[in-house]
Amino acid sequence: MTDYEILIDHGGPGDADVTVECDADHGFDLTVGLLRAVLRADPSIRRFVLEVDGQRIGVVHAELLDDDTDGTWHRTADGAADGREELPGLTASFRPVAFTCPESGCPRLTYRGHANVRPPSCPVHGVPMEGRQ
């Protein structure tokens, strides 16, 4: 099982209108930071598809990321998630970039936390998505 698997709700619905794309180079902790940044940017999102390096990992429910901490994911030296101790390293703060489908009425939305010159394609219509302000 990959680190990302602990974020997936294997018993819930298998799809969502929102996708969050991440780079594996970010690692688990920074990916969680991005996911929380997406939820802060749009609190109406309750579940989303997680993709890492273009591979679909599964559907994450926002409740798995809800907490009363400062928005960073903490890990102990043994790798377990923990709210008491933080390993040193890169910050887990992001400004996610949102993309929407240009087709009228399409609810699909994709967030990215990495720079990619080509916009994502809508999984329903196959057209390039547009950046959203």
Rank of each mutant, 00 (worst) to 15 (best):
3 D>V: 02
3 D>E: 09
5 E>N: 15
6 I>V: 12
7 L>H: 01
7 L>R: 01
8 I>G: 00
8 I>A: 00
9 D>I: 00
9 D>E: 14
11 G>M: 07
13 P>H: 10
14 G>N: 15
14 G>S: 14
14 G>W: 03
14 G>P: 01
16 A>H: 03
17 D>N: 06
17 D>H: 06
17 D>G: 11
19 T>C: 07
20 V>R: 00
20 V>D: 03
20 V>Q: 03
22 C>G: 04
23 D>Y: 14
23 D>R: 11
24 A>R: 13
25 D>I: 10
26 H>W: 14
27 G>Y: 06
29 D>L: 14
29 D>K: 11
31 T>A: 08
34 L>T: 04
35 L>R: 00
36 R>W: 03
38 V>T: 02
38 V>I: 01
40 R>Y: 08
41 A>S: 07
42 D>F: 10
46 R>T: 15
47 R>P: 01
47 R>K: 12
48 F>Y: 07
49 V>K: 00
49 V>T: 12
50 L>G: 01
50 L>Q: 03
51 E>V: 11
53 D>A: 06
53 D>F: 07
53 D>N: 10
54 G>N: 08
56 R>T: 06
56 R>N: 00
56 R>C: 14
58 G>Q: 04
63 E>M: 10
63 E>G: 08
63 E>D: 14
70 D>N: 08
70 D>Q: 08
72 T>P: 02
73 W>S: 14
73 W>Y: 09
74 H>L: 15
76 T>G: 13
76 T>F: 10
77 A>F: 15
77 A>Y: 08
77 A>P: 02
78 D>V: 12
79 G>M: 03
79 G>N: 04
79 G>H: 09
80 A>C: 11
81 A>I: 01
81 A>E: 15
83 G>Q: 11
85 E>P: 04
87 L>E: 10
88 P>Y: 07
88 P>M: 15
88 P>I: 03
91 T>E: 11
92 A>N: 05
99 F>M: 01
100 T>A: 08
102 P>M: 04
104 S>P: 09
106 C>W: 13
107 P>F: 07
109 L>C: 13
109 L>N: 05
110 T>A: 13
110 T>K: 02
112 R>M: 01
112 R>D: 04
112 R>G: 04
112 R>F: 03
115 A>D: 12
116 N>F: 11
117 V>S: 15
117 V>M: 08
118 R>N: 12
119 P>Y: 06
120 P>C: 07
121 S>L: 08
121 S>W: 06
122 C>F: 10
123 P>H: 03
125 H>G: 05
125 H>P: 14
125 H>D: 05
126 G>P: 08
126 G>T: 15
126 G>Q: 09
126 G>N: 10
128 P>M: 01
129 M>R: 02
129 M>A: 06
